[in-house]
Amino acid sequence: MAELHPSAPTPTYDTPTPRWVSLLTDAGRPVVAAWVMIMCAPGEHHLGKLAGWSDTLAWGMAGVLAAYAGIAAAVASKRPKGAPGKTSAVAGAWLSLGTAMSAQPISHMFVTGHWTAEPRPPVWLVVAVSCIPPLVLGHLLHLAATPVRVTPVVTEAQPMTTPVVPPASAEVPEPVPEPIAYSDPRCAVIRSLYDDGLRPGTKAMRTAIVAAGFESPSDGVIRGQLRAEVERREPQLAALPPAPVAFGA
């Protein structure tokens, strides 16, 4: 058989529980609890009669002890550790279990003849059994009146943050660009031709310059000097699509 390495995790095997086992467990526990109370009831009833109760009232001893054991066990299991009444509930659960257990052998000792109740039962038995119902009631009331301490969950306070709202400001109009001071006034005439979104041609620029009252310059001056200065000041104008060529005079 291969040995597991010391550092290797221990393998776990998840074996499914058969359905009949689950059914037997779920249904068997209440059945067993019921039969235990039925088997203990005659002995507790017998002790009640020995203590002096009538035949009918003596059956209440069985109900008192059964209820005491169930309530004390439930409170002991539900109370958290350190809660008020936890220790008392645990002690009551053990006391009820011990009382129910001791009732059976004591009753059986009388029934089987090992002890005799003739002419009358012992004083200690009468006193002890007679005190059981009021003691049980007192302890159950104590458990019911004991509050469960709830530890408040203290959470660290989060700092209050006020959202910063930018101050409302009036709309500031876009600044109007100042006119460009060209070295040659004819550049301003050419610049106005770009307002149509097209790059003007040589003929259109000459026509505009003459219409503005200037003498007609040469093509080299128009393209290499005047238009060059305009597009040097505003480089985006050079990327505009060219204007269609006008063939008319």
Score class of each variant (00 low, 15 high):
L4A: 11
H5G: 03
D14R: 13
D14P: 07
T17E: 08
P18A: 02
P18L: 05
L23V: 11
L24W: 08
V32Y: 13
A34E: 12
I38Y: 13
M39L: 09
A41K: 04
E44H: 11
G48A: 05
G52E: 12
S54L: 05
D55S: 12
T56Y: 06
M61F: 11
A66D: 14
A66E: 14
A67I: 04
Y68S: 14
G70D: 06
A73Q: 07
V75E: 11
V75C: 07
P80H: 01
K81V: 12
G82Q: 01
G82E: 00
G85Y: 09
G92C: 04
L95Y: 00
L95T: 04
L97C: 00
T99G: 00
T99R: 07
A103Q: 02
P105S: 01
H108K: 05
H108Q: 12
F110S: 02
F110N: 09
H114M: 04
H114R: 10
P122S: 14
V127C: 00
V129K: 02
L135M: 14
V136F: 07
L137N: 01
G138N: 01
A145T: 10
V150I: 15
V150K: 09
V154N: 14
P159W: 01
M160I: 08
A168R: 05
P173S: 12
P175A: 12
V176D: 04
E178M: 06
A181F: 06
D184V: 03
R186C: 02
R186D: 01
L193N: 05
G197T: 04
R199H: 15
A208R: 06
I209R: 07
A211W: 04
A211D: 14
A211G: 09
A212I: 08
G213C: 08
G213D: 02
G213H: 10
S216M: 11
S216Q: 06
P217G: 09
V221K: 12
R223Y: 09
G224K: 14
E231A: 09
R232S: 12
A243I: 09
P244Q: 12
A246G: 04
